[in-house]
Simulated assay, not measured.
Amino acid sequence: MGSRFHQRDQKRKLNKIYNIAITVVSILIVIVAATIFLSDDDSPEKATTEPKQITEKNQKKAEKTEEKEDAPGVEDEDSEATDPTDEEKDKDAELVEVEASGDSNVEKAYTSENWQPVGTEQSGEHATSFEKDSVDWNEMRQAIAAGAGVDEGSMKLWWLQNGGSPNTAIGTASDGNESQTYRVHIEWVDGSGWKPVKVEELKVNDKK
């Protein structure tokens, strides 16, 4: 009897151990399954959230671009080049019309505060020279072109004379196609060169 009782007691103990083991394994299985399930749940949410954020950023960027394009006064870089007509308007705005001399050949006369000396290669005491192609003559030519607003390379200089004092001169010149003739008054500025001071637009070229 003692032996049977001992065997039954051992069986009970074994069954108890098995039950505990099964319970532990079941709990572990539930924990692992729950972890896997939650991980799978998070991943799609993250995956769907990121593209949404990117889409929203792209949409905001597109809206800003549209606002910039529609804003008044905003132009593309390609359109930054100044219209020649606008340049002419700016140039005209700088000119101040003055009373013309009694010469009936003068159509109009003007000056500008923006005219500056053209610079000089000369040093020391200045002596005006009307010798063609001399340094002084070439610098006077530059000042005449600047005052007339024409390209010096194509400008035709018809006459260059003293302006009534040692440091003044008057040049008669026309643009390359001779559509307009100018009488330009210039003066010498020590250390800086010749500077245009007044321009007269002539009706006809009186030095041709």
Rank of each mutant, 00 (worst) to 15 (best):
Gln142Pro: 06
Val96Cys: 04
Lys13Asp: 08
Asn205Thr: 02
Val189Ser: 05
Met155Asp: 02
Glu45Asn: 08
Asn138Gly: 02
Asp70Gly: 07
Ile20Trp: 12
Phe37Ser: 11
Arg4Met: 14
Glu77Lys: 10
Lys61Gln: 12
Asn138Ser: 09
Glu88His: 13
Ile22His: 09
Trp194Lys: 00
Asp86His: 12
Leu28Ala: 15
His126Leu: 09
Asp136Ser: 10
Ser104Arg: 11
Phe130His: 05
Ser104Leu: 09
Phe5Lys: 15
Val98Tyr: 04
Gly102His: 02
Ser3Gln: 12
Gly193Leu: 00
Ser179Gly: 14
Lys203Ala: 09
Asp190Trp: 01
Lys64Asp: 15
Asn19Pro: 00
Gly149His: 04
Gly73Leu: 06
Asn58Arg: 12
Gln180Trp: 03
Tyr110Thr: 05
Asp9Thr: 11
Lys57Leu: 15
Ala109Ser: 13
Ala21Tyr: 07
Ala109Tyr: 01
Ser112Asp: 04
Glu77Trp: 03
Ala127Leu: 07
Lys46Ile: 15
His6Asn: 13
Gln116Asn: 14
Glu99Met: 04
Ala21Gly: 09
Ile170Arg: 06
Ser165Val: 05
Ala33Val: 13
Asn58Met: 15
Glu121Asn: 12
Lys13Asn: 08
Val150Gly: 00
His126Ile: 09
Lys16Gln: 13
Val30Glu: 10
Ser79Lys: 14
Ile36Lys: 03
Ala93Val: 03
Arg4Lys: 15
Asn205Met: 01
Asp78His: 01
Glu200Ser: 04
Met1Asn: 15
Arg141Leu: 14
Val199Asp: 02
Ser165Ala: 13
Ile31Leu: 13
Asp40Lys: 11
Ile22Tyr: 06
Thr120Lys: 03
Lys60Phe: 06
Ala81Arg: 08
Asp42Lys: 07
Gln180Val: 10
Ile54His: 08
Gly147Ala: 11
Gly124Cys: 08
Val74Cys: 10
Thr65Cys: 06
Lys52Asn: 14
Phe37Asn: 10
Asp103Lys: 06
Ala93Leu: 07
Pro84Ile: 01
Val204Asn: 07
Glu63Pro: 01
Pro84Cys: 02
Ala143His: 00
Val32Trp: 00
Gly191Met: 03
Thr172Met: 12
Glu201Ser: 03
Ile36Ser: 10
Lys208Leu: 11
Met155Val: 01
Leu202Trp: 01
Asp103Ile: 03
Ala47Met: 15
Pro166Ala: 00
Gly164Leu: 09
Ala81Leu: 10
Lys52Trp: 14
Val74Lys: 10
Val96Asn: 07
Lys108Met: 11
Asn167Ser: 12
Ser123Gly: 11
Ser192His: 06
Glu50Asp: 07
Lys60Ile: 06
Ile54Asp: 13
Lys108Pro: 03
Lys108Ile: 04
Trp194Ala: 00
Glu152Ala: 08
Asn105Ile: 08
Gln53His: 11
Ile17Met: 04
Thr23Gln: 08
Thr128Phe: 03
Glu56Pro: 00
Glu77Leu: 07
Asp9Pro: 00
Val24Tyr: 02
Asn177Lys: 09
Pro44Phe: 11
Trp159His: 15
Gln116Thr: 15
Asn167Tyr: 06
Gly149Glu: 03
Val150Phe: 00
Met155Leu: 10
Asp133Gly: 02
Ala109Thr: 02
Thr111Glu: 08
Gln180Arg: 09
Ala93Asn: 08
Phe37Ala: 10
Asp136Met: 02
Asn177Gln: 14
Pro72Glu: 06
Thr82Ile: 10
Lys207Leu: 01
Gly153Ala: 10
Asp78Val: 06
Ile20Val: 09
Ile170Cys: 02
Ala127Gln: 14
Asp151Ser: 09
Glu66Gln: 12
Ser129Ala: 04
Gly171Pro: 00
